[in-house]
Simulated assay, not measured.
Amino acid sequence: MSGGAATPDELRRALDASAEAGRPLDFWWRDDDLQRPGAELEPLLALVGATGWVPGLAVVPEGMDADGLLARLAETGAELLVHGFAHRNHATAGAKKCEFPGTRSTDEMCRDAAQGLHRMNAAFGGSCLPCFVPPWNRIAPELIAELAACGFSALSAFGPRRTAEPAPGLKCVNTHIDLIDWRGTRRFVGIGAVRAAIIRHLAAVRAGGAEAEEPCGLLTHHLIMVEQDWHALGVLVAELAAHEGVRLFAPSDCFCS
């Protein structure tokens, strides 16, 4: 592996090593910031159709085109997650963007979270999982403690989880590999870099730096990625699916099992 990129052979050897060590090789896929159907969504749905891998689409409840999404997603099998409420920054000046920072009142945050879930349930019914995905992957501990009371049974942010149950009645399964280079090009990092990130994650699991039982989550952003990015991701998905020790989970496999 050189220059932060890995080859298919290097990925396969890393998967082999994890399988031989008896480590789970479970992967799941989340895509953020969905509000309405459009051209940017079509390559993602083409990948779903080609691979059968069911993604978790994190939908922003406020301003969503519920009818349009319902019509476009009806036959795809995609599962929907609640992406905050309005994807609006409430952080104080100079702080990192966050819709649900500790500087907001807990009652206000709970109101927004519950309203987001209510809107999603009303629009999509059983296609919506009661999983809260905080915008920018940041959330105040005060809200985590109240999410179950708001109607949620799951939470998904970014990075190795600290615990599988961060609050009573709340299961956490995060994403771990972001396919966008936010600090540099703000574009797709490339398939070699994604392979390398998976290899690093597997090494962290073996070293105890990440929980073995937590499925490895890939995080995509359909509004930023272009068609050739999705083709590259399709190659990676085929490499993962070809390994006998790998399981490609749907969100419901993660949160409802």
Rank of each mutant, 00 (worst) to 15 (best):
H221K: 12
C216H: 03
I224F: 13
V226D: 10
W182E: 13
V189T: 15
H201N: 05
A193T: 14
I199M: 15
E213D: 10
G190R: 06
R187Q: 10
I198Y: 04
W182Q: 10
E227N: 00
R186P: 03
M225S: 08
D229T: 02
I224Y: 15
H201E: 06
V194N: 11
E211K: 08
W230A: 03
G184V: 07
H201S: 06
A203T: 04
P215A: 07
G217P: 03
E214K: 01
L202N: 04
E227R: 09
D229M: 02
I224G: 11
G192C: 10
E227T: 01
W182L: 09
G192N: 10
L219T: 08
V189P: 14
R183V: 12
A207P: 00
R195E: 08
A193K: 15
A197W: 07
H231D: 04
E213R: 10
R195D: 09
I198V: 09
A210M: 03
I198K: 01
L179N: 11
F188L: 05
A207E: 11
I180H: 10
H201C: 10
Q228L: 10
I199R: 15
A196M: 13
A232F: 09
Q228M: 11
E211A: 11
G217K: 08
H222F: 09
A193Y: 14
I199A: 11
D229Y: 00
H221A: 11
A197H: 01
C216G: 00
G184R: 01
H221Q: 12
A210G: 01
G190I: 10
E211C: 08
T220G: 11
G190D: 09
A210D: 01
D229F: 00
T185S: 14
I199Q: 14
H231P: 08
F188R: 02
A196F: 12
Q228T: 13
G184T: 11
Q228I: 07
R187A: 09
A212R: 05
L179S: 15
E213T: 05
E213C: 04
A232I: 09
R186L: 12
H201M: 07
L223E: 15
A193D: 15
R186I: 05
W182V: 05
P215L: 08
R183Q: 14
T185R: 08
G192L: 07
L179I: 14
T220R: 02
I180G: 02
C216R: 02
I198S: 02
R206N: 12
T185F: 12
I180P: 06
R183K: 13
I191Q: 12
A207I: 02
I224N: 12
